[in-house]
Design a protein around this nucleic acid. Structure first.
Length: 303
DNA sequence: TAATAACCTCGCAA
DNA sequence: ATTGCGAGGTTAT
């Protein structure tokens, strides 16, 4: 039997919108149970489902975690300590962000593993969500530890050490393309302690940004994604193609504006929770303009 | 400082 | 059918 842990919550939480909005690449819908999701957290396969009073996690009992420890991890992962309605009220002065909030009121920013997120967004360069997800799955099945939940078999995303060990050549074989060198370099830096990701959690924005962009292949956009989705920097405002389109369309922003200028503009307009505004703008325009991309996410996994 | 090309791969027709 | 283009960027020129 598997272990089921329920967590009562009084915060909005939409699993679909939170796990499938481009901030995470390794969650899959559970074909066997509508509404449920399967993922790998800290090397353990987890099934998540929304319940009337909150959220329920299902893991192998051999995982060796107490119910309390699991509840603590869920709270951290979904940032349930963030008062989302308060954040949404603070952003409500903006009609375009509000439009996103209205459609996805339970979309939360996740607090994910910094290394996995760093790797994922290195792979995102000139790519697209289905392909990033595919490549990460290939890396996991090739280099990661196997994990199970009942009959479900998945693999943990490989450690920095395992990716460093694989090296650029192997990473190219695993469909990373020109990003292979960047991923290998990042894995080296993390494994060797030159990039102390966990120490950067909660570090000042400028410090975290400088440490990340010091690595090859990591510019301001990828750094912002890592800071927003894994390093507790809710003010990070990743400006990708779609966010830029949204800003140009909705606010008449000059399309040629530099990255730094857009960031300043966002901080002035949205303040400390610019990252939440970003996510609502991003996912809303994305769902509106390119509904096909989301469908691509549910394709077959492992080779 | 600002523009432009190159970089792997792959799915779809902008 | 098949080719060409562009996809949640970054770097080098």
């Amino acid at each position: 039997m598997t272990l089921r842990v329920s967590l009562a919550i009084d915060q909005p939480l939409d699993l679909d919108a939170s796990l499938d909005s481009g901030q995470s690449f390794r969650w899959r819908r559970d074909d066997a149970e509508p509404g449920a999701w399967l993922g790998v957290l800290e090397g353990r396969v987890v099934r998540l489902r929304r319940t009337r009073s909150g959220v329920e996690a299902e893991v192998e009992p051999e995982a060796g975690l107490s119910a309390e420890e699991i509840a603590t991890r869920l709270t951290a992962y979904f940032r349930l300590d963030d008062d989302l309605p308060a954040i949404q009220r603070a952003l409500a002065a903006d009609p375009h962000v509000t439009a996103g909030i209205v459609v996805f009121p339970g979309l939360r920013i996740l607090r994910q593993d910094p290394w996995e997120i760093l790797a994922g967004f290195i792979l995102s360069s000139t790519s697209n969500i289905p392909r990033i997800a595919r490549t990460m799955e290939l890396l996991a099945s090739s280099l990661g530890e196997e994990a199970r939940l009942g009959g479900v078999r998945r693999h943990a995303f490989p450690s920095p050490e395992a990716v460093a060990e694989a090296g650029e050549g192997r990473l190219r074989e695993l469909r990373c393309g020109f990003r292979a060198a960047y991923l290998a370099a990042a894995a080296d830096a993390v494994a060797a302690g030159r990039l102390p990701l966990h120490e950067l959690r909660g570090a000042p924005y400028a410090e975290a940004a400088a440490a990340l962009t010091a690595l090859p292949g990591i510019g301001p956009k990828i750094a912002d994604c890592v800071m927003l989705f894994s390093l507790d920097r809710a003010e990070a405002f990743p400006v990708d193609l779609w966010v830029r389109r949204a800003l140009v369309d909705h606010y008449g922003l000059d399309p040629k504006l530099s990255y730094d200028s857009v960031r300043e503009w966002a901080w002035e307009r949205f303040g400390a929770n610019a990252g939440y505004a970003n996510q609502y703008l991003f996912w809303h325009i994305r769902q509106t303009r390119r509904p096909m991309i989301a469908a691509g996410l549910t394709q077959p996994l492992e080779p």
